[in-house]
Structure formats: C-alpha cells, structure tokens
C-alpha cells in the first residue's frame, strides 16, 4: 500500500515528467503531447514504484519489461527513462533530431531502457506477449507491462495477441488500455465504437479491472491484485488525454499538435 509521503512523491514525479513532455514536444516542434500527458501517471507508478528495474543495468535479464504499444507517446517514456538515469537528461534535447537515439517512435536497439520497437499501432502488444511466453519458457518470473491506446485496440492484431495470451495462460502479462476516448480523428466511440471493453477482454479470457488511471492508489493496488491472477490481466485505465494542462485536457486537437511558444509558456505555468 501507498503511504502518504510516497503518494506525494509520485505526484511530484508525474508533474516533472509532464513538464519534460511538454518541453520536448515544444522544442522538437513535433510529437504527441496529449496521449503522453494522459499516460504520465501510469508510467510514473510503474517506473517509480511497481517495476523491478535497474537503470545502471538496462539489460538485467530478470527486470520487469514495459512495452509502449501506443508508440507515438515516446515523450512520456523518454522523460521517465532519463530521470531514472538510463541516459543523460541532455539527450532529451535531441528528441526527434537526426542522429538521436530518441526517435519519434521507440527504437529498442539504440535507446537504453526501451524494450521493444513500436510505432505501428498493434504490434507492441504482440511483441509483449511473445516476450512473456519467452520468459515462461525460460522459467523466469518477471512481469510484462504493456500500454495500449484505446484507438490502437481497434487493430485486429490486438485481438490476435489477446487470444494468444489466453491460450498460453500468460499470467505474467499486465496490460493497460489508456481509455481516454480520443484518437486522431476525434471521439473514439464515434470513430469506431469498442465499448463495452471489459466484456470484450473478458470474453478473450483475460481478467479485467477498470480503474481511474490518474489515481496512484488505484493503479498500484490493482497491479498488486493483478499479480495474483492466473490469467493475463487487462487494466482499463480511464484517463483524460492532455491531463495536467487545462487547455489540452479532453481536446482531440492536442493529439499530435506541438505546442507553440505561447501554449508552451501557459502549460509550464500550470505545471509549476
């Protein structure tokens, strides 16, 4: 369980990460700010409380893995990895620049701490369940955390991965659907209705929990419960896209629009 101090620390961390997200996308004048801000609390909970990992030893075999299946949200993971010490914070200045290891979408061979290449929506969850099967074959007991977008799960491949994880009873998989009800072209239930999500995942043999994806207590206690399950788990995390910056919250236009100077200044004031 989370004591009060830990709770406060996580909140502070998430705010720092949000500042980095907005700064990175502003500087590069390119990138996805909304979905990164919305996932900041989940990523913070994972990297600063839940996951067994060692930034000094990114290849440690028994580390827990994280797959950013919604690969466009690199700013949130790069900010966390840099802060944890996987690579120097100055590297964040090179985000989306030629020659940088911080590519627009995750490039596992080059970035310390990135566990899989993603960018094409749908491929990350399949890679994740494949890795989880590999761990089973090697009799290792780390966990595989996979973060999907709610637009992303419209891809057929996601449901192929869901069936596969059920068949091999991959109870070392803990997935998240970042349920912000927004994607590139707007409101998700209008673009392609997917509700009820819980029933869909359950019918594929997954154990489903629905939580508030901005509540550290809920995120962390749900993961603790999830670890006791004997089947793969999907956590449907209700979130607000753009969370933390009032004028971006719930606004589809901030999916892939970089904040110009005036918006950047306003956002940084709010994230102070």
């Amino acid at each position: 369980m989370l004591d009060e101090q830990k709770h406060k620390d996580l909140k502070t961390k998430a705010k720092e990460i949000r500042r980095e997200i907005v700064s990175m996308v502003h500087r590069a004048n390119s990138g996805h700010v909304g979905g990164s801000l919305g996932a900041a609390d989940i990523v913070t909970a994972l990297y600063y409380h839940v996951m067994q990992h060692d930034p000094q030893n990114p290849e440690w075999e028994s580390r827990d893995r994280f797959v950013l299946s919604k690969g466009h949200c690199t700013p949130v993971i790069y900010a966390a990895l840099a802060d944890c010490g996987y690579f120097p914070k100055e590297d964040l200045l090179t985000f989306r620049r030629p020659g940088s290891h911080l590519q627009g979408h995750p490039y596992q061979p080059k970035t310390p701490g990135i566990d899989a290449c993603t960018g094409t929506l749908g491929i990350g969850i399949s890679t994740g369940v494949g890795m989880a099967l590999g761990a089973k074959l090697k009799k290792q007991d780390q966990y595989y955390y996979i973060l999907c977008g709610d637009g992303e799960i419209q891809e057929g491949q996601v449901w192929e991965a869901a069936a596969f994880a059920n068949k091999y009873k991959l109870d070392n998989v803990i997935g998240f659907v970042d349920r912000n009800y927004l994607q590139t072209d707007g409101y998700s239930e209008k673009v392609m209705p997917m509700d009820p999500l819980d029933a869909k995942w359950e019918s594929f043999g997954w154990k489903v929990f629905t939580i508030n994806g901005h509540d550290f207590g809920e995120i962390i206690s749900t993961i603790e419960t999830a670890k006791k399950e004997t089947v793969p788990v999907m956590i449907i995390a209700n979130t607000t896209k753009g969370k933390g910056v009032s004028f971006m919250e719930g606004e589809a236009e901030w999916h892939g629009k970089p904040p110009a100077k005036e918006h950047f200044d306003k956002a940084m004031l709010e994230l102070n």
């Binding site: 004048n29 989306r96 590519q103 627009g104 979408h105 490039y107 960018g119 094409t120």
Partner: peptide
C-alpha cells in the same frame, strides 16, 4: 515524413 521517423 519528418519527425515521426522510420516507423512512418
């Protein structure tokens, strides 16, 4: 394509 990089 620019900023999105190789994946796109």
């Amino acid at each position: 394509v620019g900023g999105d990089g190789a994946s796109h």
